[in-house]
């Protein structure tokens, strides 16, 4: 039952690749957004907040359509990437990674933002009066204390990227070996006769990965709260 066919392996491998790169690129962006939203006041902050969380509530097909209009071969961002860097992301796995990153960003930012907000700014002030520059206080106090939340955010973003469907299929379509990630492969198997077996196998795999990610993220979040409160 759990022998995966080469085609199924292909989808799993692709999903892992998309998940890895989408998380790797989201990390710095997500952390910057989380920090700014947690610690800074500026005009249009609620607009930025709304944009970051929008993919969470927007129908994924709409997010995919927006990406297609912006990053498609005829879209402004797509044309820019093509002419300046010679890069096309529409209908490529890199496009799948971009769609996954956008869909995972709200989850990542939320986890990171909560953990940054949990770090007492008065500890940072204490570090400054002891002679630490802003950067040193950031790297020796803020970052280590919010690290479990950062890791939790990365895990959630990875899990979301690993299984993203709607925006991905809208933006980069369903190309085996290139953009056919695990959930898209499940969908395709269901469209073919006798496809239920492979579909269910991949579905179980997907449940296991998602569950592991949620448990891992929860565990990390508990660690951050335990470290910041008296035992």
């Amino acid at each position: 039952m759990f022998e995966l066919s080469p085609a199924e392996w292909e989808a799993v491998r692709l999903s892992l690749k998309v998940g890895f790169w989408s998380t790797a690129f989201s990390l710095p962006v997500g952390f910057f957004l989380a920090y700014v939203l947690a610690r800074r006041e500026f005009p249009l902050k609620s607009l930025l907040n709304g944009l970051v969380y929008l993919p969470l509530v927007l129908p994924p097909v709409v997010t995919g359509l927006i990406l297609l209009m912006l990053f498609g071969t005829q879209g402004p961002a797509g044309k820019f990437l093509e002419s300046v860097f010679g890069v096309t992301i529409a209908f490529r796995w890199t496009g799948a990674a971009l769609a996954a990153a956008i869909m995972g960003l709200p989850l990542m930012v939320r986890a990171m933002r909560l953990s940054i907000e949990a770090v007492d700014t008065r500890l940072e002030h204490a570090a400054r009066t002891l002679g630490a520059s802003w950067w040193r206080a950031f790297f020796t106090v803020t970052l280590p204390l919010s690290l479990p939340g950062i890791i939790a955010g990365a895990i959630l973003s990875f899990a979301k990227s690993f299984g993203e469907f709607g925006a991905t299929i809208t933006f980069v379509s369903n190309i085996p070996g290139e953009t056919q990630t695990l959930p898209i492969a499940i969908y395709s198997f269901l469209q073919t006769p006798n496809g239920e077996g492979p579909a269910v196998r991949l579905a179980i795999l997907s449940v296991v990965v998602s569950m592991a990610a949620i448990v891992g993220a929860e565990w990390m979040e508990r660690r951050v709260t335990r470290r910041l409160r008296p035992a």
Partner: peptide, 17 residues
Amino acid sequence: KPEHRRVGYIFQDARLF
């Protein structure tokens, strides 16, 4: 900046890291 003032500060809550 605070780090250049060399002013020691002991708070009501110890604020240990």
